[in-house]
Amino acid sequence: MKIKPLQIIAHIILILGVLLMVVPIWISFASSSHDSVTILTEGMKFHIGDQLARNYNEVLNEKGGWSEEVTAAKMFINSFIMALGIATLKVVISAMSAYALVYYRFKLAVPIFWLIFITLLVPLEVRIFPSYKIVSDLGLTNSYTGLILPLVASATATFFFRQFYKTIPDELLESAKLDGANAWSFFIDFLVPLSKTMIAAMFIFMFVYGYSQYLWPLIMTTAEEYWTVVMGMKIIYTESYEGVALPRTAERFAYIILSMIPPVLVVVFLQKWFIKGLIQTEK
């Protein structure tokens, strides 16, 4: 097969794109395997050093914070619980509210939809004081419920589910009705399986959204046992080193690499569904 010049150019562009994405991550990873002194004196590294196990072990298990009790491992668990809770509830609530908006043709469906849509203009950061007030009055500060609950309503996901449900032909619903499906079984037996690629996509977006929350957990948590990874990132960068101690640059890189793993895992795991949905056109 003859290779055309256009193809070569296309490949060069693609390879450049890949390098742009991968090189910073590789540098972070390579740098995280040296000791801090080397990096401070010689700059960032492109090759793997000999301090890999030590650095990662230290980052994961060293106790920190004011009480010297919280570890990075605990923060990973917290972030994971928070992101998982937010993503799961967001998907469930959005899918159900979209179902109600599309299939129950009550008079106010359209105004209600726009009302939900308008909340896009009021992100959490804008309404953070009222939100904090409500959550604190409910006594939910320093709890997973408090971390998750204010973030579970999603206009974006509702909108995407609504658009998807609208493409499902009416005959499917009618046929299911004649087959004895009720409102609940139509949702579970039809809409959920038909939108599973959609659900996977939304879950990934919402997981990353939940995982990268910073301001809300910062305000919500006073107890260190509820600290999240993103908060920890700030702590590890601003920790005070008195006297002769050096900034722990290598550990910072290790921490960054570790903090990327959960979202990457979610994407890798759910990608299967994506590809499946792309290959089989089921409509």
């Binding site: 005959e171 009618e174 046929s175 039809f190 038909l194 089921e282």
Partner: peptide
């Protein structure tokens, strides 16, 4: 009922 577009359950 048999529909014009059959309305088979695609999944």
């Amino acid at each position: 009922m048999v529909f014009q577009n059959y309305a088979l359950y695609p999944h």
